[in-house]
Design a protein around this nucleic acid. Structure first.
Lengths: 247, 247
DNA sequence: CTGCCGTCGACTGCCTACAGTACACAGCCG
DNA sequence: CGGCTGTGTACTGTAGGCAGTCGACGGCAG
């Protein structure tokens, strides 16, 4: 299995080989989307992606389907894939759903968390806070998501945990810039959340998590309201004017 | 496009042509799963499905991926697809998540429902009840799911609605036998729910929906506890002993 | 100049074919 | 007789190629 020697001219994200090609391609395209190299609404031509990543169209197709399943791209039969362009409304609704899922997770975590789980929460929390102090925003944001994921896992409900992770991942894409701003507040809220979980106080844990996520949601809406960012109400059906790897 | 003249020997579900082949195949396999023609844990060979449906492996692969995305089958790389076999725990967790999503939907529906929406609810409700009286269980169950879907739609949150529909569809697979039993109680609860929504009483709507779905969940657990149904804790890794179309 | 129509191009959807791999069984050695 | 190894089979993962379809552009009539 010695292929893909023509791939990765540098701009494209590396494509190791964790398991199958389609998963590698999935990760690669997802990273392109999250990093903003592919703008919302943009058309994704299979052949182009295939050539760029040094694989055939087949794994690209399957990766696009996986991405569609998680809401990252829209698949219009006969027209191909388009990077999902969330409206303000939809983002708001997604954030609301996240609040719902994570609040319930926090409640259950308060009921079910083990001392070991709590200590893991503390570890992540201190790590994230340290990163923030060191101005290492990247690590801080990563710890943030790690902490939220951990809380959902401590809920003991795998279905809930998976759903919440998926929703949160998309949410994070939207509000990362927000997270950068209100870093310290966020970590203080996290600390209060952990206390509530450790105390086994389900109501308080739920309340803290609700406040926390709602806080995030409102910040997002505020930001997006004052900075419309994408003032293109007209559908950009035109084919992409320049190369794909314009990131 | 004149192919597939070798398909449908009778046992396999018809495959019309709504849009793309992969969607047809998706529907066909899903129906096989829901109807029980494919038992949980069973291995699904791509070639077999392909031959059975009169298509090539390609659309089958993509359909299996879609099914995997919605949790109907498990995709083990290098090993193929297996019909998802939910444990009691997982079913319980899924039902709990459904309660969460539908309860929130009901709350929002009470806040946002229009008079038109309420009358549509009433229409479905009376239709379902009539079907029950006529012993038309099939129609009654269909109306049941239609009503729940309608409630989620009236919530006004598309993301929530989609998620709830997806989860509920899986849930329905598990507890359909239960639904058959407690038909009348169920429709009385539905009527109370509609009243609460019409009155705009979000707390009551949420409470009624919570009771309703929890009621279902407990019935399911009860039933499954007393009738273990699938007493095969050993993983049936063996290849299917007989033909696929054994339904 | 505006609206319609034919042609062209590009892309998707699907199929066939090949390579690679994991499992199972049979035979062999200790 | 038990464990190990070799071989065979069946399956998945991937590549390349062909047909069908949709959108866009240029030319033509009004």
């Amino acid at each position: 299995m010695v292929r893909s020697e023509t791939a990765n001219p540098g701009a494209a994200p590396k494509i190791p080989r964790p398991a199958t090609l389609r998963e590698s391609v999935f990760e690669a395209i997802l990273e392109l989307i999250v990093r903003g190299s592919l703008s919302p609404g943009q058309h994704l031509a299979e052949s182009e992606l295939a050539e760029m990543l040094g694989v055939s169209r087949q794994p690209v197709r399957e990766a696009l389907q996986m991405l569609s399943g998680e809401g990252w791209v829209d698949l219009r039969p006969g027209h191909g894939a388009f990077v999902h362009a969330p409206t303000v409304d939809e983002a708001d609704q997604l954030l609301a759903v996240r609040t719902l899922l994570e609040t319930e997770s926090a409640r259950l975590a308060a009921l079910n968390a083990t001392p070991d789980g709590v200590s893991r929460l503390r570890e992540v929390c201190s790590r994230g806070l340290a990163a923030l102090e060191a101005d290492d925003i990247e690590t801080s944001v990563a710890a943030n998501s790690e902490l939220h994921t951990l809380v959902t896992e401590l809920s003991g409900n795998k279905v809930l945990s998976e759903l919440a992770s998926q929703v949160s991942r998309r949410v994070r894409w939207y509000h990362t810039p927000v997270a950068r701003q209100r870093g310290r507040d966020s970590w203080e809220e996290h600390a209060r959340l952990i206390e509530a979980i450790e105390a086994g106080d389900e109501e308080r844990a739920a309340q803290v998590m609700r406040d926390h996520t709602e806080h995030t949601r409102l910040s997002y809406l505020e930001q997006r309201a004052e900075a419309p960012a994408e003032p293109e109400p007209i559908a950009p059906r035109r084919r992409r004017p320049r190369s794909l790897s314009a990131g």
